[in-house]
Computed example of a mutant assay.
Amino acid sequence: MSTASALNKMIVTSGFEMPNLDFEAVMQHLTETGKRTHQLWLTPDSLAFVARGREYRSEFHLNPSYEIQYSLKGDLNLHYRTPEGKEEIAYVPEGSVLFQPPLVPHSPRFAPDSFQFVIERARLPGEIDRFHWYCPNCDHFLHEESYVVAHYTNDPVGRAYENFYNSEEFRTCDKCGHVMPAPERL
């Protein structure tokens, strides 16, 4: 069976569809195409996708929904900020799952050959996802990008990264003057 047909297998019964997903095929598809996410489903209540690691990930995502993150392959270091603004790390080894409440500033960091299965509540009309960057030198707030996330096929994280890294002004700390380097490739 081809990768494309394995990705799109559906069980249809009594007028409704139930996705039957082959995680290995999805991970292979992401690796072969170089894409970072593959949306598995989007319903009025939930969305799910598989994400491949971004070696340059540094922002903190503020998601209005909960997130359930399952480490399919490889380990996840979930950097997050406490209500006091302190950065902490939750370790999620391969085969483990983490539940994250809404609006926790978080930065999922895992290798490009690692994969996460993520389930979230679908966004309500008008909800906004925010992406925050902090100076790696002094931890001062650098920049915010915000998006309405309707589909992960639109890659909101990738778009936020492009906007941030394409601007030296956004990457320059107005407190200490440090310029966060841009990755060679996004």
Rank of each mutant, 00 (worst) to 15 (best):
E120D: 02
D22V: 04
M10A: 14
S114V: 11
T37R: 15
E184V: 15
Y161S: 05
R109Y: 09
E127L: 06
N166H: 13
D155F: 00
P156N: 03
Q116L: 11
Y66G: 02
C173W: 05
A150I: 05
L72H: 00
Y147W: 04
D174K: 14
H132I: 00
L76N: 15
R57N: 03
T31I: 09
Y152Q: 03
F49W: 09
H38I: 06
K9M: 09
G177R: 00
V12R: 14
E59Y: 03
L186F: 08
Q39A: 06
L124A: 11
M180S: 12
P44A: 02
K86M: 04
P183H: 06
P125W: 00
S96Y: 11
V26S: 05
E59G: 03
R185S: 13
Q116G: 01
D139I: 10
P181T: 11
R123T: 04
N154P: 00
C138T: 08
D113F: 03
E17K: 12
Y161Q: 01
Y80A: 13
F49A: 01
G85M: 07
R81N: 12
P125H: 03
E32F: 08
L72G: 01
P105D: 08
R52V: 12
H132L: 08
D139E: 12
L47R: 13
D22C: 02
H143T: 03
C176F: 07
L7E: 05
G85Q: 15
L30V: 13
N20M: 10
M10W: 05
M18C: 06
T31A: 15
G126S: 07
E94V: 01
V92P: 15
P64N: 07
S65I: 02
P108I: 15
Q116R: 01
F141Y: 05
T31M: 07
W133M: 03
G177P: 01
S114W: 07
H106L: 12
E168Y: 08
T37A: 04
A160I: 05
S107G: 02
G158I: 04
P64D: 11
V97K: 05
S14I: 11
E162I: 05
S167K: 02
Y134P: 02
T13W: 11
T43P: 00
E67G: 12
K86C: 09
Y161I: 04
D45R: 05
N163Q: 04
P183K: 06
M1V: 01
G74D: 10
H79S: 07
P64E: 02
N8Y: 04
R159W: 05
S146P: 01
V179I: 14
E94W: 00
P93M: 08
